[in-house]
Write a protein that binds this DNA or RNA. Structure first.
Lengths: 236, 236
DNA sequence: CGCACTGTTGAAATCTTTCAAAAGCTGTGG
DNA sequence: CCACAGCTTTTGAAAGATTTCAACAGTGCG
């Protein structure tokens, strides 16, 4: 029990790291976030449905994805969520979650509106500002996704996405030496990149045998960032 | 001179129509917008560049597009702007214009921050609320674009886009009987839909000869909305 | 052990692009 | 008014990228 609680608090550090990079948090505020209530969801579960309001929910640990289905069963994954990401980055628009959010791994979700205590008002204000900055980033991720789908070849799409994920994970301290946890199946990659599963497989093979990336034990490593960047015109 | 001024004010009505559908405007406020200063730009001109702040600029008349170039010359058009649309729908994020905006036709741009007068403060507030609602719509257009690029075949993409444009134009009163002004070249369509110009041509031909749309004299008409909708799974 | 899911591979089919050329259209200057 | 340049649309044929179909190997789990 105690151990589980500690683990949960340790996971919260990623979220705190992401927030601290953007807004200043007092020790007290950090402590409030550390001890805020959280929700655990298992791998594969639907975290939020289309139309739900999740104004102040953040992913504290684990990965998730945003998906939309077409009538004929095709699915578009519009993006991936990593620790530190808000479930509804555009919530201040009054915009509810606009598509399904599904847990890719077991996830922990912190809803900061459930934080009580004397200084919670100011904390919510800080979080609002954090939200704004993060929303700007997510707008950029949308644009990245559009560039990939609209302009890139299959190999470029893959390279570009792998680089984007690396950048994002690095910012919250979840990379080491170009290597990061990689829980995405080839089917998810296919639905995100607008490719068939079979082709994703071939493209990954191509990147691997060109010595650009390596994949072992659920982790992915960027071996030649420079080549990947020029291949996919990735910037930043 | 007088004639040109009248024309300009008449054009402003489209913008007003768009705004009135969303927020209540007093006669006085409508008058302020009617007489607000405007900027005219000729066809083909760059209206705003990446990084520019255009917090309160709206297209009063004409069409424009949002584009981003890759190093190798490929271009992604992320969306089209029609009368009533803001140049920077996500400006309250502190987000500057994030890509180039180019005039497709001669355009008139109203910057509502240039409105003076006693009640301008309240008007700005109203406009801010309008902005929020419109931003929500534009988020949807982004998602539409992602679905097109990620899940649709060439014919579906085209059908879906033509339907979206029709819906949007209808909302500001710029359609009649399924017909609307259509200033887009096949090259623009290609860059928006992630297709080659040649293929766009063939796809249009296909839609025309299937009796689904008609194109004459710079106008496009939806002939069989129902079939187009089921073809592209367009909803709303 | 067997089932369900994920990854891998080959071959054929399909969609889309590229290349090349020509025709239509528009505005400009002689 | 014609000629011309420049842009847009159109068409055919060949090349290329990606998908589909089908089958099989690996892995984890009850």
């Amino acid at each position: 029990m105690r151990a589980a609680h500690d683990l949960s608090i340790r996971r919260r550090e990623t979220l705190l790291k992401g927030m601290s990079a953007v807004v200043a948090l007092s020790d007290d505020e950090q402590q409030q976030i550390r001890t805020a209530g959280s929700e655990l969801r298992e791998k594969g579960s639907l975290i939020a449905e289309d139309g739900e309001h999740r104004r102040s929910s953040f992913l504290a640990s684990g990965w998730a994805l945003r998906q939309e289905f077409l009538a004929d069963g095709r699915r578009q994954i519009s993006g991936f969520l990593i620790p530190g990401d808000p479930l509804a980055p555009f919530s201040y628009l009054g915009e509810p979650v606009s598509d399904g959010i599904v847990a890719i791994t077991p996830v922990e979700i912190v809803d900061v509106t459930h934080i009580g205590g004397p200084r919670s008002a100011r904390l919510l204000d800080v979080i609002e500002r954090f939200n704004l900055t993060v929303a700007r980033d997510h707008l950029q991720f949308y644009r990245n996704q559009m560039i990939r789908l609209g302009c890139h070849s299959a190999v470029q799409r893959m390279a570009h996405l792998l680089l984007e994920l690396h950048s994002r994970l690095m910012r919250v301290g979840l990379t080491s030496d170009g290597r990061y946890e990689f829980p995405l199946t080839q089917e998810m990659l296919a639905d995100a990149l607008g490719l068939s599963v079979v082709h994703v497989n071939r493209v990954m093979k191509q990147l691997r045998s060109a010595g650009l990336v390596q994949q072992t034990g659920g982790k992915l490593q960027i071996l030649n960032r420079k080549r990947l960047e020029q291949l996919s015109e990735y910037s930043e």
